[in-house]
Structure formats: C-alpha cells, structure tokens
Amino acid sequence: MFRGVVAIVVFTGFAGGAAAFDANNYDAETAPAEALEYGLDSYRSGDKESAIEALSFAADKGNAIAQWKLGQMYAEGDGIAEDDYKAFELFSEMADAHADDIPGQPSSRFVSDAFVALGGYYRDGIPDTRVKQDLTRARQIYSYAASYFGDPEAQAKLAWMYYNGEGGERDSVQAARWAKLAADKGDVNAQALLGHVLFEGEGVPRQPVLGLMYLTVARDQASDSAEWIRDLQERAVSVATENERRTAMALAEDWRASKVRQGR
C-alpha cells in the first residue's frame, strides 16, 4: 500500500538543521519542519520512540509528511502498537487538507498514498470502529487518486473494482482503461488484469497478442506467490496460436527493453 522506504529517503535533509531540534524542549514555537526532520532522522537511526514523539508533534501541527509517516507506522505496527483507526484518522486529515494540492509537487505523492490507504480502509472496513465497509466510497476515493494524482496503485485498484463490479456496476471497458494506465507505469496486478481482459475480449475487442504480451510482462515481474498471474499467463499460452505466441513474446521483450532504457 505504501511506498514508504523510498519516500523517506527523498526527504533526507528536507527541513535542515535537525540537530537544533530537542525532543525534550520543543514548544509551541518549534517549527513543525524541525520536528519532522528530527523524527525521520530518529527513525532512520532506529530510535522509533523519539521518532514517534517528534512526528506526532509535527503531525499535530498539520505537517503532511509527518502525518503520512506516522499513519504508516500505525498501519504497520512499526515501532508502535498497530492501530488502523489511528492511521485512518491521520490519512483523513491529510486528505481533507491537501486534496487540491498540485500533482507533481514533492508532497503530492504522500497525499496520493493517503488517499489509496483510505480507499483500502473503506473497501475492507476497520473492525470495531465507525469505519464500516463502503465499496462505493472506496471506489470514489480510488477514482480521485487515480484521476487527479495519476496514482498507479489507485488506478490498478480502481480497475479491479470496475472489473469485479465492486462499489457500482461492472464495467470491463473502464477496467481496461484504468488497468492500462497503471500497467504502463509498471503495476504488475494491472498488467495481469489488462492482459486477461484483452486476451479474453471481456467487454472489449479481443486482442490476443497484446493481451498475452501484458500477461507475460506481468508474470516476469510477479512475485513467486502470485500464482494466479502465472496461471492466467499459462492458460493464455496454451490456447494461443503459434503466431500469437511468437509475436506476443517478441513484444514483451521489446516492452522490457524499453523500460530498461527508461531506467524503470
């Protein structure tokens, strides 16, 4: 759900002057950016207790990056007792305050992550809290992150919701549309879904070569545990013609080479 490890590295040195922040003496005049930097430095050094204290201070002051990182720690039980509802509250604060942030800004990736997390909480619900399963709301949230921020994870999850008819009518055309956007950004689950829809022609014109290409690319990148991707690809290979197989494999190789050239 999160892209946390890489994201923290991006913000190394974000605020500057981390040494000036004293976790034992901060007050209302302390800059949230100082607390954020101290918190991230503490986290990287393994001092998660100090990290939580400093990040909580910055989060309470409305610092979006601190809210995001603290929410992630609550969601994963990372250095603190796991608490999905607390994570939900932090991500909600971010979404409410930064929904209109300009995409492409350094902070927008964190805001987008918060929306994806909220979509997941509404999709599944949080037991013993007021956050109940609401698939319609989940689809709306994924749709916002997918369209406004262009988030590939949101695009992939939205594609699957359209494909499965979750939160609204089933729509294979919309599923293929959103899956393609995410697939071309490297999302493996979206590649598999798009490949399956195109190969089978589910609600869209059948394109077996392109479908098998995406399925092959997905299988090459999928983890060993993603047996469903392997099964879809093997089934497609078994029913494709020899010419379709050869052409799809060549296209898959070209696709991989192009991504290498692009540094992905």
Rank of each mutant, 00 (worst) to 15 (best):
S238G: 03
V260N: 13
T216D: 04
L215N: 13
A252E: 06
Y214E: 11
N25C: 12
A252T: 03
A51M: 04
R246F: 12
E169D: 15
G104H: 01
K132V: 02
E93W: 09
N164I: 09
A117Q: 05
G165R: 04
A236C: 03
P127H: 05
E93Y: 10
R261C: 13
T241A: 06
A154E: 01
N164T: 13
D113I: 04
P205Y: 03
T247D: 13
S147I: 06
R235Y: 13
T30Y: 04
A192H: 13
D22K: 05
A23T: 09
V260A: 14
T241N: 09
S223K: 10
A114R: 02
G79T: 04
Y74Q: 03
P127F: 02
L210E: 15
E53C: 04
I65F: 09
E166R: 01
M161L: 08
M1N: 14
D254S: 11
L212H: 11
E200D: 12
W255D: 09
E200G: 12
D254C: 09
D78R: 07
F88Y: 08
R245I: 06
T129K: 01
E227G: 12
D124V: 00
G71V: 01
T247Y: 11
H196Y: 15
R130P: 15
G211P: 11
S50T: 03
A146N: 07
L90A: 11
Y162H: 11
A226R: 10
V111D: 01
R170I: 09
F57D: 10
K157A: 08
Y38T: 05
A35R: 07
A20Q: 11
M1D: 15
V131P: 08
R109Y: 14
A240P: 13
K185P: 05
A66V: 04
S107G: 13
A66F: 01
L251W: 07
Y162P: 07
D27S: 05
E200N: 14
I141C: 01
S92I: 06
F21W: 09
F21E: 12
A31F: 12
D60G: 03
D134C: 00
S147R: 12
V188W: 00
A58G: 07
Y122W: 05
A156W: 02
A154N: 03
A97Y: 03
E166M: 00
Q207R: 13
R219A: 02
L40D: 12
A54R: 01
F2V: 12
D84Q: 04
W178Y: 14
G39H: 03
I80E: 04
G4T: 15
M73C: 02
G167Q: 01
E242L: 05
Y122I: 03
G211A: 13
D83S: 00
E37V: 04
F91C: 06
V209K: 10
A156Y: 02
G4I: 15
T129H: 05
V111I: 02
D84P: 03
T241D: 09
V260L: 15
V237Q: 11
A176T: 10
D128R: 11
G263M: 09
F57R: 11
V10A: 13
F11W: 15
M1T: 15
Q133C: 00
Q105V: 05
T136F: 07
G39Y: 01
G125W: 00
